[in-house]
Amino acid sequence: MAENSINKDIVKEENLVFKKTGLFTDKPLSYCPGCGHGTAHRLVLETIEEMGIQSETIGIAPVGCSVLAYEFMDIDMQQAAHGRAPALATAIKRLYPEKFVFTYQGDGDLAAIGTAETIHACNRGENITIIFINNGIYGMTGGQMAPTTLPGMKSSTSPYGRDIQSMGNPLKITELVAQLPGTYFVSRQAVHTPAAVRKAKKAIKTAFENQKLKKGLSFVEIVSNCNSGWKMEPVQANQWMVDNMFPFYPLGDIKVPAEQ
């Protein structure tokens, strides 16, 4: 058996260097194998754990693959109607200004049906954190075209590839919200390699810490994969993401406060 290879001399509590954050519930993640949602969840939870703010944090789950995020995060959470998470977060933060409030949304939720809520929460400069998972597709409903689907990219509702003439252009909503005076910190990251995960973690932590400064909204996009929707194996999907998604959605900080 493969597990026999564990080295009993090394596997001791005092030698521990990495373990799953205690802020996950015991429920197995419902995401497809290799899906970036799990890693993005973990980074949010690690941040909350490290900041010691579990009892001060309220999260908002979207409609989409991560609709059940509240099942996996041991955080007080509300599940919003499709696209409306920033509206819920706005009210909660204004009613509890000292709490930490975040939304966790996919591209269909945030950049299509919830565009108005997203833009206006950003423009008002609500002191919340928005975590935006962009995999260019509607994963949960079975791989339909999303607002962020790339030109020429195939989906179940663009089976011959996204035709810009008839289906319109992909929306770079992260660049768009970075233009608004209400956003304080805007960053685009990924979670497909160890280095990318470290950078994404840093951005998410910054986004949560910014809530203390009360200077506006922090927005972190995670460009992610959708193996099932893209119809690829996980490792292949990550490579496709590097080759196709990143040129259109380049990684890095998009808006950084002047004093940082």
Partner: peptide, 20 residues
């Protein structure tokens, strides 16, 4: 070498890492 790279990218957080 216990670098934890695998654990960092594991979407299901199923990997625990030790080193000495």
């Amino acid at each position: 070498i216990g670098c934890a790279n695998c654990a960092l990218v594991c979407p299901d957080a199923v990997i625990t890492v030790y080193k000495m």
